[in-house]
Simulated assay, not measured.
Amino acid sequence: MNESNESLALDEPREVLREIGMIARCLDSISNVEFQHLNLSRGQYLYLYRICENPGIIPNQLAELIKVDRTTAARAITKLESDGFIVKQPALGNKKNKVLYPTAAGLEAWEFIRREGVHSDQVTLNGLTEDEIQTAIQLLRRMRHNIEVDWKFVKKGGRRSYMDNDE
Rank of each mutant, 00 (worst) to 15 (best):
S120H: 06
Y101F: 15
A73C: 11
V123M: 10
R114K: 15
H37Y: 02
R144K: 13
A91I: 04
G127D: 12
E3W: 05
R144A: 13
V118Q: 08
N2L: 06
V87N: 01
D69P: 06
D121Y: 15
D28T: 10
K98G: 07
R114N: 15
N39M: 01
N97K: 15
R115W: 02
K98H: 07
E108L: 05
I30C: 05
G157D: 09
G158E: 13
W151Y: 15
E53N: 06
D121R: 08
G84T: 07
F112L: 14
N97L: 14
D83G: 01
M143W: 08
L125E: 10
E64F: 15
L80P: 02
P90S: 11
A24L: 11
E15W: 10
V99E: 14
F85S: 00
R50E: 15
G21T: 11
A74T: 11
L38V: 00
E34V: 14
L62I: 11
D150R: 02
Q61F: 06
M22N: 14
Q61T: 14
D121I: 12
E108N: 10
I77N: 01
Q122I: 00
I23A: 12
S161V: 14
Y101P: 05
A74Q: 08
L17D: 00
N39A: 00
R75G: 02
I58N: 09
E64R: 14
R14T: 04
F85A: 02
N126I: 03
L139R: 04
S7Q: 09
A104C: 04
T135V: 07
L40C: 01
E64M: 12
I30P: 02
F112N: 05
Y101N: 12
A91M: 14
P102Y: 05
M1E: 13
L140H: 02
K152A: 03
